[in-house]
Simulated assay, not measured.
Amino acid sequence: MGERDIHVPVLLERCLELLAPALDRTGALHLDATLGLGGHAEAVLLAHPQVRLLGLDRDTQALRLAGQRLAPFADRTRLVHAVYDELEDVLDGEGLDGIDGALFDLGVSSMQLDDADRGFAYAQDAPLDMRMDQTRGVTAAEVVNTYSHGDLARVLRVYGEEKFASRIAQAILRERAKGELSSSARLAELVRDSIPAPARRTGGHPAKRTFQALRIEVNGELAVLERALPAALDALKPGGRMVVLSYHSLEDRLVKQAIAGRTRSTVPVELPFEPPGSEPALQVLTRGAELPDAAEVAANPRAASVRLRAVERKPATDGKQDSR
């Protein structure tokens, strides 16, 4: 499969290492909440011959390709077309009471970036779509052609952390007054021309932040993540572990907050001890966010911005291993 050759799972060995204690259990169930092309999932299934996989993805093309890749493990896999904030409904529908391992590999996938027709990449001309699930939702073209100046500027400033959001929004409004703006190449050109020349010389492609912002808006990525993280943490069985890979500060901030809210003690600081039963149910497995090393980035340039965080639901206090 050609797609396999271009897809290098990010921080694969570290993910496997962190998940292993939770998945080395009889009948363990692993959730891949962002299945993509199935690289992480395939490695998990190979490393743990008894593990069952529940794979979710909102992209129907990704599900099809991942299904081909994971065909040798068909008796241990269940692939579902769903966004990861639908996890509770999926678990209920599958009759599952919890998960042992979970992986979230956030952001846009290699396949989506490399498929010019999807409109995610500013370096290739394509219709402005940017939907991860092409069966529903508004497109990036609808956003740039219908949002007011204020709403466009807000999206670019908040989701893209773009300093020149107002100038770019104004350029978009001028352009669409001449006719519908539907080309990713034309949008990238507008953004470049809206940013002062000195600012264009640093920070990579000048359209990078705008395209990120539009993608997040189109797919509701941050709102979906904010709903999904608590659901996944609640679904972890005792001894279960979750690993999250995020690729920009907005994602990582939400992950950090969700984990902190479940791992921080609620006992008043003036109390000299922690009463039995009041300890947090979860514990952090990483010291802050782990970054890729130089070898990882050299092998997979898309790993350059990744931040990894992991958490574990503490094992049952009676010392018995949960083997569900």
Rank of each mutant, 00 (worst) to 15 (best):
G98K: 05
E42N: 10
S148A: 11
A33C: 12
P196T: 03
M130T: 00
A232G: 02
S194E: 02
D117H: 14
V218A: 02
M132N: 07
L229G: 01
K314I: 15
L70S: 07
I168W: 02
G55D: 02
R69S: 09
A41Q: 10
L16W: 03
L56A: 03
R192K: 14
G98Y: 06
D252Y: 12
D293K: 06
L12M: 10
A232Q: 03
H248E: 00
G240M: 04
P72C: 03
E94C: 14
K256V: 10
L222R: 05
S148Y: 04
V155D: 04
P276A: 15
D75R: 14
A303Q: 08
G319K: 08
A62C: 14
L245I: 13
E161N: 10
L173T: 12
Y147I: 13
A199F: 00
N300A: 09
K320V: 12
L16K: 09
E226R: 09
G179W: 01
L113T: 02
G55E: 01
R174W: 07
L214M: 00
R192T: 15
K178Y: 11
R186Y: 11
A304Q: 13
G101F: 03
P9Q: 07
L70N: 03
P301I: 14
A207H: 03
V8N: 05
S305N: 08
I168L: 03
D32N: 03
P9Y: 00
P272F: 08
K314F: 12
D92E: 15
R157L: 07
G101D: 01
Q61M: 15
G288V: 00
V255E: 00
L31P: 09
G203D: 05
P238R: 04
E13N: 13
L152C: 08
L54T: 09
H81V: 05
L282F: 10
G239W: 03
H40M: 09
D85C: 08
G150T: 14
R307S: 09
D318M: 10
E221T: 06
Y247E: 05
R253V: 14
T317L: 11
R200G: 02
Q257G: 13
E3T: 13
L23G: 06
E279G: 11
L128A: 06
F273Q: 13
M132L: 03
A232E: 01
T210A: 07
G239D: 07
A33T: 14
R201A: 03
P127G: 02
G39Y: 01
L282T: 08
H30K: 04
E221P: 12
V191Y: 00
R313T: 00
N300L: 09
G38S: 13
Q321C: 14
